[in-house]
Computed example of a mutant assay.
Amino acid sequence: MRRTAVSAAALTGALVLAGCGSDAPADLSVSAAYMPQPVSDSMAAGFLTIANEGGTAAELTSVTSDIGEVTVHETVDSAMREATGLAVPAHGELVLESGGSHLMFEQLKRRPRQGETVSVELRFAGADPVTVEMPVESATYTPHSGH
């Protein structure tokens, strides 16, 4: 009888611990967002960091903006390619930075200028969309931290 009670208590404790935080929803925030002023009338890049404080991973699946088409790109072995999605791990972050994964704006309807902001909506599998106001920096801007 004592062995059964101890086993039941251990099983209950394990089930309670298994539920703690393991399936908490993704909790996303964005920082260090910017777009270097485009040097071309048709293309631009965007960079940012997406942090996930939640217990469930999310995946960046698409991005929209009123200034043109936006795709997510990744750099693999020095080659840039369009990505169908990028993971935002639970309790981790996804960094979109120059020379790595980034946003690519194409077929621009207007050419953003330094000092303006560009609105983008980030869409995710596993989390609600996030709207970001991305400041346009100088074409040679290099962030101090976060990228």
Rank of each mutant, 00 (worst) to 15 (best):
L86K: 05
H73D: 13
V132L: 05
E97C: 07
A18P: 02
L60H: 09
A127P: 04
Q107N: 12
G54N: 04
I67A: 04
G55H: 00
L122D: 06
G68F: 08
V72T: 15
V30I: 08
A87L: 14
N52Y: 02
V132G: 11
H73K: 09
P129G: 02
S138W: 12
L11K: 02
T12I: 04
H91D: 12
L17T: 04
D23W: 00
E53L: 11
D66G: 07
K109F: 10
R3N: 13
R3A: 12
S40M: 11
T4H: 14
E116G: 15
S29F: 06
A9L: 13
G55R: 03
V132M: 09
V70F: 07
M43Y: 15
E82S: 13
V6Y: 12
E121W: 01
M80R: 15
V76R: 15
V63I: 05
T75G: 04
G115Y: 00
G55D: 02
T142L: 08
E59L: 00
G85K: 01
T49V: 15
H102L: 13
A10M: 12
D23K: 01
R113C: 04
A32D: 12
P25I: 02
G115Q: 03
V72S: 06
V120I: 09
F124R: 10
A5P: 07
A57G: 08
G21I: 03
P112K: 00
A90P: 07
L103M: 11
A44L: 05
D77G: 14
G55I: 01
L60E: 05
N52I: 01
G146S: 13
H73I: 05
L28T: 10
E116Q: 12
H73M: 10
D27C: 01
V136Q: 03
H91E: 09
K109V: 08
G85R: 05
E106F: 09
